[in-house]
Each structure stands twice: as structure tokens, then as C-alpha cells.
Amino acid sequence: MGGLAHDEVAALYEAYGHLVRRRCGLTLRDAALADDALQEVFLKALRYGSEVKSAASPLAWLYRVADNCCYTLRKKITAPSPPPAAEPSWHPVHHLEARNGVLAALAGLPERDVRVAMLAFVDGLSQGEIADEVGSSRQTVNRKLQEIRERALVRLRGDDD
């Protein structure tokens, strides 16, 4: 797995940098960590990103790397962050409460489940599309999403108390 040239990474950053930053901000809810994650994602592209050239969707590749970087960075969060000053834009296709509940519950999820949660509740993919993306059966994805929803509900109820 080789890397990308400086100019290729610069072009990726110009096209997708703001989208990667937005996703990292959604996941981490911490502007400084999100900026750290943004640099880490493009550093990985610089060092190991040659496969992005043949990827069906460069953005989906970057999102996958971003989710993994955020998973690692999330471990550095020792205290709940205050809500960000400006919420990233969101679309009515998201059920905001469900999305926020899931994002709040990410900290307790295994790495694989975080990816499934992001694909479902942030990217809005169908269960079949997620199954294709992560190489699992649709039944497995369905079961995972059910577990994630239940965790999110517990988290939301806990926050209400």
C-alpha cells in the first residue's frame, strides 16, 4: 500500500477537506480534536493512500479513515466536551435526536460497531448498503443496529435523569 504525492493530497484536501472536518466534528464534538483528526486523515492519505485512486468513492474512503482516526482520538477524551459553538449542518433525513443519541453512545461501542453506526446514522445508508460496505450479512447489520439503538436509548434516558 503506497502513498500519494503532495499535489494529489492537496487536491483531495481542496475537494473533501471540509467534509472530513465536518464528519470529525460530528463524531468528536470537540473542535481541536476534529482539527487533529483532519490532519491525521490526510497524513494517512499521504503515506498510505494510493488505493484512493482506484476507490469507487474517494469521499467514502476518506470517511472510513476519518472514522478510524476519530475512534482512536476519542480515547483521549477524558471529560465530556461542551457542545460545539456551531453545530455542523445536518439534513432532515437525519432524525436528529436518534443521531445525537447514537453519537453520544459511540464511546462505548467496539470499533466495528462505530463504523456501522456512522454509515447508518450519519451517512444514511440502507442496511443492504452497509452490509456491502463492511462485508457482513444484512442480518448481522440489522442486529448490530438494533443493539446500537438500544445503547443510544439507554444513553438518552441517562442524560434525561
Partner: peptide, 13 residues
């Protein structure tokens, strides 16, 4: 609606 990922990709070109 299209999925947010589809909208992100459209916006990105």
C-alpha cells in the same frame, strides 16, 4: 431524500 452521503458526494463534484 437522497442519503447524506449522496448529497456530500454531489456537493464534492
Amino acid at each position: 431524500h437522497p442519503s447524506p452521503l449522496q448529497l456530500d458526494e454531489l456537493h464534492a463534484g
